[in-house]
Design a protein around this nucleic acid. Structure first.
Length: 543
DNA sequence: ACTATAATGAGGTCATGT
DNA sequence: ACATGACCTCATTATAGT
């Protein structure tokens, strides 16, 4: 891995090394491989498994249990969604393999001061319980607005709250407006997001009506979904959420209140593993099987910044009370790159950018686009438009002059990826592009790591910008042996966090030559992440 | 030797239509 | 259910230039 280009998430504080690296100690960036502080040995959370105590001996519970879902999980979901929402129950069960049954209300009233959304969530939670209580015998054939909203990606709490507030007969658009307004009331771009929501709504609503017409009852729909699940299991396919918002993002939250982790997965240390979301078939299933069968969290960074970045994360971090870095980064092109607005053609309707890659478009392409535009008077014809839009999306070009579509500059990418301007200065331009293209999107990962603040982990690191700890840099991950780890743990007292990504070279869609999968030359270094995590746990466990 | 440039598709998901 | 098309992707490498 120490040869050419097997970089992992090397966005550390000092150099822009594109090789595999592993830093130990207090680093300034959330993308080092391991973080150790001598101070606190982390508050152990009660993720322990809880026995099922329920009174849902109904047929529906049995039906779901026959499909292989644990009873506790089924009853938990039914308690949240109501027994009537068969569709939503199945969706939830399919999405989350394990849900514990701790009543969510108990987890919500702790520290509302830290999380601006917690008030809303609490409201939703309370409203939800009211809702389920009073609405147990809703007919399944009726077009349940709660189900529709959940289908659209909203949480049961949000959906229930909206229905209660606006009434069951309110049009879906009004319900959606209510939810988005609740989330966005403090934001500036309310209108834009309303538009987005509404467009999504219209599409989903149309599709849903068609489904209604075709299906002749929930049993058939259930059968279809069960069949789909069975087929997916056979083919080792993991379900990618759409929209790709993982366990919740700041403004379009689909909150999983709680999850139960396997005992052996619970920290210390905490860990977070990352890689591309769109891998060859079966890869994420294999990764998952080496990381305690924890369900990956698939998140697209377009919900955190202006550019897309579809990634999967497996971690054992708590999910409650996450919060984003402030100020929130711009999420539209015009906000992020205001100077492009002047040159932006009306027929280029992009509002966000595609994934930041390691290569940029050529100057010749910019020229080709310019000459194509100069040949036509006024607005280009459909064919030219299609060609140019296609190239702009493919190469992430932005309009920087009259008829001039150019690649992003390194410092612009630094900002988009969440790093300070000039963070990568000092190496060649190509190396800057490569390093940034290989990095974490800071805001995305920081959101997942933000829970560590509440737990008192790395608090000093979080609060201050200037780092005073020791940085130990090893350029080869295979040098991080069991003995070295023992040494470090003896010296520091243990690791709080083991974090990193492994090479995506052999997984990424952009690789046209050696997309060989997880066993590929570079991507197989994933197993070193597993090795190190196991070693750390083993060493810390016997102390 | 180092750096920049430009050419090099396929695999997979999703939406839509039949 | 099946076909089709749109869409997107932490990349690799030969080549030329400095």
């Amino acid at each position: 891995m120490q040869d050419d280009n097997s970089s992992d998430e090397g966005s550390d504080s000092i150099d822009w090394n594109t090789e595999d690296e592993l830093e130990i100690a207090n680093t300034s960036s959330p993308s080092s491989v391991a973080i150790s502080t001598t101070t606190n040995a982390a508050v152990t959370t009660e993720f322990g498994e809880s026995s099922s105590s329920n009174n849902y001996p109904s047929k529906i519970v049995n039906d779901f249990m026959k499909m292989g879902f644990p009873e506790a999980m089924v009853t938990k979901v039914i308690r949240e969604l109501g027994e009537n929402n068969t569709d939503a129950i199945l969706d939830t069960l399919l999405t989350y393999s394990v849900v514990d049954e701790v009543p969510h209300q108990e987890n919500r009233h702790n520290d509302q001061t830290l999380n601006p959304q917690s008030n809303i969530e609490s409201d939703f939670s309370d409203l939800d319980s009211n809702f389920s209580d009073e609405d147990d015998d809703e007919s399944l054939e009726k077009d349940d607005p709660v189900v529709s909203l959940i289908d659209m990606g909203y949480s049961p709490y949000e959906a229930s709250a909206a229905v209660i507030r606006c009434g069951k007969d309110a049009p879906l658009s009004e319900l959606v407006d209510f939810i988005s307004a609740a989330h966005l009331s403090k934001e500036t771009d309310v209108e834009m997001d309303k538009l987005y929501f509404t467009s999504q709504l219209l599409k989903k609503d149309k599709k849903r009506k068609l489904e209604k017409e075709k299906s002749c009852g929930i049993n058939k729909k259930l059968d279809i979904k069960i069949e789909r699940k069975r087929r997916d299991d056979d083919e080792d396919v993991l379900h990618l959420p759409n929209p790709m918002i993982g366990f919740g993002v700041p403004r379009e939250s689909f909150q999983v209140v709680h999850r139960t982790l396997p005992k052996e997965a619970i920290g210390p240390p905490y860990f977070l593993y990352e890689n591309v979301a769109l891998t060859p078939k079966g890869v994420w299933n294999t990764i998952k099987s080496f990381l305690y069968e924890i369900e990956p969290e698939f998140v697209d960074s377009r919900f955190f910044c202006v550019a897309a970045r579809k990634r999967g994360y497996i971690h054992n971090l708590p999910l409650e009370n996450r919060f984003p870095i402030r100020p929130l980064p711009p999420r539209t092109i015009f906000e992020a790159l205001p100077e492009t607005q002047k040159w932006w053609p009306s027929w280029d309707n992009r509002e966000q950018l595609n994934c930041i890659l390691t290569c940029i478009g050529s100057a010749q392409l910019t020229d080709r686009i310019r000459s194509a535009l100069e040949k036509c008077d006024g607005e280009p014809n459909l064919h030219v438009k299609k060609y140019i839009i296609g190239q702009c999306k493919k190469w992430n070009l932005v309009w920087t002059g009259k008829n001039r579509a150019a690649p992003l500059e390194p410092d612009e990418i630094e900002l988009i990826m969440g790093y300070p301007v000039n963070h990568t200065r000092g190496v060649s331009r190509c190396e800057r592009y490569k390093g940034l293209g290989n990095s974490f999107q800071v805001d995305t990962v920081a959101y997942q790591l933000s829970v560590l603040k509440d737990l008192g982990i790395i608090q000093g690191w979080w609060e201050q910008t200037n780092q005073t700890g020791n940085l130990i840099h090893m350029s080869d991950v295979e040098d991080v042996t069991f003995g070295k780890l023992e040494e470090c743990i003896r010296s520091f007292g243990g690791f709080d966090l083991v974090i990193g990504g492994s090479p995506c070279n052999n997984l990424a869609g952009g690789n046209r030559r050696t997309r060989d999968g997880l066993e590929g030359e570079h991507s197989s270094l994933f197993y070193d992440y597993v090795r190190i995590l196991d070693a750390v746990k083993s060493i810390m466990g016997r102390n």
